[in-house]
Amino acid sequence: MTITLVSVMVAVLIGGIEALGLIGDKLSLNGWFWDGVGILNDHFNTLGFGIIGIFIAAWVVSYAVYKMKRLDEFDVALSPKA
């Protein structure tokens, strides 16, 4: 669940940045916001490394919660045969 949520958030973020970049370019928009979007579009490589870090952090936090709640120690009961 955690990795799926992070994947969706990253996809929306990347798609949003790309869409805003296209809108800003086609409409020749200026200003601090559009300059920031342009900088992000120019540095997708660096943004990619950040996304890898987000995935690693999400995995580590998910693993830690899994271990702290002891979700790996519950008993699995087999249903009786009919």
Rank of each mutant, 00 (worst) to 15 (best):
E18V: 10
E18S: 09
A19E: 09
A19Y: 05
A19R: 00
L20P: 01
L20K: 03
G21E: 11
G21V: 05
G21H: 05
G21R: 00
L22N: 07
L22F: 11
L22T: 15
I23Q: 07
I23M: 11
G24R: 02
G24C: 04
G24N: 10
G24E: 01
G24Y: 01
G24T: 02
D25H: 13
D25R: 08
D25V: 03
K26L: 14
K26W: 11
K26T: 07
L27H: 12
L27Q: 11
S28C: 12
S28I: 04
S28W: 02
L29T: 11
L29H: 11
L29M: 14
N30P: 00
N30Q: 12
G31D: 14
G31K: 05
G31Y: 03
W32L: 14
W32M: 13
F33S: 04
F33K: 00
W34D: 00
W34Y: 09
W34I: 07
D35L: 12
G36L: 08
G36H: 04
V37K: 00
V37M: 03
V37R: 00
G38Y: 01
G38H: 08
I39V: 15
I39K: 01
L40D: 03
L40Q: 00
N41F: 02
D42I: 01
D42H: 12
D42Y: 00
H43N: 15
H43Q: 14
F44I: 10
F44R: 07
F44C: 08
N45R: 03
N45Y: 10
N45W: 04
N45G: 13
T46F: 02
L47G: 04
L47F: 10
L47P: 06
L47E: 04
G48S: 13
G48K: 04
G48I: 02
F49P: 06
F49D: 13
G50I: 09
G50F: 14
G50N: 10
I52V: 15
I52C: 14
